[in-house]
Computed example of a mutant assay.
Amino acid sequence: MLDYEKTKAWRSGAVRHTYTVRDTMLYALGLGAGSDPLDAAQLRYVYEKDLVALPTMAAVLASPGAWMRERSELGIDFLKLVHGEQGVTLHAPLPVAATVVGESRVTRIIDKGEGKGAVLTVEKTLTDDATGQLVAVCEQVLFLRGDGGFSQGQGGDAAAPALPAVPEGAPESMLELPTRPEAALVYRLSGDTNALHVDPQVAAKAGFPRPILHGLATWGMAGRGVVQQACGGEPHRLRALQARLTAPVFPGETLVLESWRIGTDEVAFRVRAKERDLVVLNNGRARMDV
């Protein structure tokens, strides 16, 4: 059973991560950038000439790793963990190469009840090791399907405010983002080597007909689309991005980013898998500099 006190007190300590322009380009390739070799806007992410970093890469830098699996005394059923939501707030443009320091901590654990699971939120601050400047704050929400009832009816922490729904009616703009058949094989090289995304036998045991794309890759592709549509192709203008992961994506599918303007500096969005007409990312909000 999940140990609330031990889990809430968990801290990663300082995780130093040195990444290069090659890592920056590899991350972008994992999100489908460069699929059109004549598109100068895409080449900025995958070619060292005038290279820029996609801001969503902050989510994969200086990761604390599979700490829930390694810390058995926490009592978390790692095999029943599902990535539920992801967010990032940018405080400075992400360098194309740097050494960054990540410090992660658990900020909230909600008990939904016996047989109903628990919800755990992890916050990661990312700073530039050379300057000490805060670069980004990332928030990951995990659904622990096997850990409901740990508080014996006390409920754990209070629930966080729900992500706002997208507006009713047809989206104001749509953008197709094709995924490559080998997308998961490329994206995993940015750090998430879970066999679910590469091994057909592991995928079958998890109930999938074939390996699925990483949820953070779907989220990152949405971020790339938001930068293209709402930030004029300038990644430094993106200030925050958050969304709920609602269904898996199979590599090779076409993602459709559907978005609505909210005022002058905010966009609501969702992502649909075109071939299955299925919403795979929902309750998305992005904020940008005008």
Rank of each mutant, 00 (worst) to 15 (best):
A130N: 11
V15C: 11
L134Q: 09
V271N: 03
L216K: 03
T218I: 05
L213G: 05
G113A: 07
L126C: 01
V119S: 03
D23P: 04
A28V: 01
V227P: 09
M68Q: 14
K112Q: 01
V15N: 07
E182M: 09
A170V: 10
Y27E: 13
R105H: 13
Y45S: 11
R71M: 12
I110T: 15
M221T: 11
G220H: 01
R108D: 11
M288R: 15
F143A: 02
R22A: 15
T18M: 10
R272Q: 11
G32V: 07
R239C: 08
V166S: 06
E234M: 09
P209V: 08
G115V: 02
L81F: 00
M57D: 07
G84E: 05
E234T: 06
A195H: 11
V96N: 10
V166E: 06
A118K: 10
A92Y: 12
L278Q: 15
S190I: 07
V96I: 13
S151T: 00
E258F: 01
V100C: 10
G146S: 08
L2H: 02
Q86A: 05
Q152T: 08
V88E: 02
T89K: 10
H197W: 09
A222G: 13
K6M: 11
V101Q: 06
G263F: 06
A59K: 00
S72A: 15
S259G: 09
L278V: 12
G252K: 01
Y4K: 03
E172S: 04
A183P: 09
L90F: 15
V122R: 06
S151H: 06
T254P: 08
E123K: 09
W219F: 15
D265C: 10
V271Y: 05
L94G: 00
W10R: 10
L126T: 05
L245C: 04
D277K: 13
V15K: 13
P167M: 02
W67S: 05
D192A: 12
K205W: 05
V186E: 08
G156H: 09
E48W: 11
V271M: 12
D77S: 12
E85R: 02
Y45I: 06
